[in-house]
Design a binder for these strands. Structure first.
Length: 552
DNA sequence: CGTCTTTGACCCGCGC
DNA sequence: GCGCGGGTCAAAGACG
């Protein structure tokens, strides 16, 4: 929508002016015609003609006066319009700032909650290989047990929050510990690609790192998770005709997209195994392991956060499981525990559980032969986690801010980009708002709404929220899929209502805008900066997921 | 010319 | 100790 051009001005506020001009010109022509026809002779109807001329002159004066009035009004309208536009921009900036602050505050709060709980549970080491000192370990027996637990459960997938280059107060809050801060390489200043140094590798216990395995139907060689990977090896694995490829993260600090005050969390993995399922070649098995020590583009944080959350679930589940929670009778075959809504079943053969079965078919936690605790997210099933009434809370509500669980949902999800991991196939897996979602219908390339029709495994897409709101408030309004049928002011008003009514939507919207404006330049266009998002149309704000297929 | 992929060699842990 | 398999390294080639 363009404001300020002459054409639009006259179209909106100056329509009357145009009409007046026409009538004025017509009047002049009428006035001149008798003169040209008279050829210097006195008109036959002498006195009446003079009277007519006088009247025409009066009319001309009136028209001129009216025209000047209209011009003044036009000027007033223009000024009014510019005022409105200025107010609009100011409000937009204020909303952006407020939502950003809210997001950051809740982020800080939740991070603090997480760290408190982590401290209390003494389960997660926030540093790679360096376990925080634990005063309770004075008791020898406890110490031995806990050291064993640490060995088993300390993850490469730790949580590390950082603000990019901003020395804000939140940075102190977000720093996990002083010990960790010394371990974070200064790769952002040095501008060097991060590689796991031998020191880091030696600090980690490579045989104990937790892995997150993602099974998904995918035609492409790798999942498009927004991160950049470099292949460093390939092996034929036993029992699988398809080779297993090894990838290393190459996102590193050379990535130019770093907004100040924009929170990044640097979880996710530096090792990336990709393998086709031996039984079903259409299934891609992706295994994540390790931790980034650098910020990630928002587009990459979606997968990162989910894999980390899954690892966290494994971590907390394995360590806080109450084996004695089941009656002795039922404990003869399996042992179950309830993990934040997940029912965990441990094979009870007296040994350390090799596999931990979850009551939802899409999730399982297992321990590989090489002591790799592994959590598997099976996304090949068409059963959406959130749709099962008997399903655990993981899929539908685990990540929602309204159902925040500081243990199982350790992170905020500022990312609102929508990543399509697959080709345009039905049942495609996509990443939207930081959550996995299934598209139950084939994509259509020209429809920006295709991401909105997904069955979402995680947080409800904001568009769906909007739809439900619209449906609640006005059964006739559907936005924006049928926007051609409805007036724009209605939809804008409804959208405004919705944004005002729902703070979480504000956060999501702000995150989405930040993501689009900020990370829209991540791939390809890096020169746009923040301003590049200002002129985006509504449809541009929700780009087709297919447009992000080229992330890798 | 720089970056990325390929691929054979090598290392290492585990089981027998 | 030996063999096997998983994982990594690094030189060579491909590619833009």
């Amino acid at each position: 929508m363009e404001f300020g051009s002459e054409r639009s001005d006259s179209d909106h506020g100056g329509g009357e002016v145009k009409d007046e001009k026409r009538s004025d010109e017509t009047a002049v022509i009428i006035k001149e015609t008798p003169m040209s026809n008279s050829k210097g002779t006195i008109p036959e109807d002498g006195p009446s003609a003079i009277t007519n001329r006088k009247e025409e002159g009066d009319e001309l004066e009136k028209a001129k006066a009216k025209m000047s009035e209209v011009r003044e009004e036009n000027q007033r309208l223009k000024m009014c319009l510019s005022r409105v536009m200025n107010d609009y921009r100011t409000l937009q900036m204020q909303i952006h700032n407020i939502t950003q602050q809210e997001t950051q505050n809740s982020f800080d709060k939740e991070n603090n909650n997480l760290q408190e709980i982590i401290k209390e549970s003494e389960l997660v080491s926030l540093s790679l290989g360096n376990f925080p000192s634990n005063p309770r370990n004075d008791e020898k027996a406890k110490k031995q047990v806990k050291e064993k637990e640490y060995e088993d459960l300390s993850l490469g997938l730790d949580y590390k929050f950082e603000t990019s280059k901003s020395a804000s107060t939140s940075e102190h809050l977000l720093k996990p510990s002083p010990e960790n801060s010394s371990e974070v390489p200064k790769e952002e200043e040095g501008g060097e690609t991060w590689k796991p140094s031998k020191d880091e590798v030696s600090q980690e216990n490579p045989a104990k790192k937790t892995r997150v395995c993602v099974r998904a139907r995918c035609d492409t060689p790798t999942l498009n998770d927004g991160c950049q990977w470099r292949k460093y090896g390939q092996k034929i694995s036993k029992g699988n005709p398809c080779p297993r490829a090894y990838y290393r993260c190459t996102v590193a600090p050379s990535c130019p997209v770093r907004k100040q005050n924009n929170l990044h969390y640097s979880i996710t993995c530096y090792i990336f195994q990709v393998q086709r399922c031996a039984q079903d070649m259409s299934i891609l098995i992706t295994t994540y392991e390790g931790t980034h020590n650098h910020s990630l583009p928002l587009s990459a944080t979606a997968m990162a956060s989910t894999t980390s959350a899954a690892a966290s679930m494994l971590l907390t589940g394995s360590s806080t499981s109450h084996y004695s929670s089941m009656p002795p009778s039922s404990a003869t075959t399996t042992t179950s525990s309830d993990l934040h809504g997940l029912n965990l079943h441990f094979p009870n053969d007296g040994s350390k559980p090799k596999q931990l079965y979850l009551s939802h078919p899409a999730l399982s936690i297992s321990s590989s032969s090489q002591s790799h605790p592994t959590v598997t997210l099976d996304l090949t099933s068409n059963i959406p986690l959130s749709s099962s009434s008997s399903a655990p809370n993981f899929g539908g509500r685990l990540f929602t801010s309204s159902n925040y669980n500081p243990i199982t949902r350790p992170l905020l999800y500022p990312s609102s980009t929508s990543l399509n991991f697959t080709s345009s196939e039905s049942n495609a897996l996509s990443w939207s708002n930081g959550f996995l979602s299934y598209n139950a219908q084939p994509y259509s390339n020209n429809n920006n709404r295709n991401i909105l029709s997904n069955i979402n495994l995680g947080r409800q897409p904001m568009e769906n929220m909007y739809h439900s709101y619209i449906q609640r408030n006005n059964n006739n309004v559907s936005f924006p899929q049928q926007e051609a049928q409805h007036s724009m002011p209605d939809t804008i008003a409804a959208a405004t209502k919705f944004i005002i009514a729902d703070p979480s939507f504000q956060s999501s919207l702000a995150a989405a805008l930040t993501s689009i404006i900020g990370t829209g330049n991540t791939q390809g266009n890096q020169s746009g900066g923040e301003d590049s998002g200002k002129n985006k149309k509504w449809g541009d704000l929700f780009p087709s997921s297919s447009s992000r297929d080229n992330n890798n």
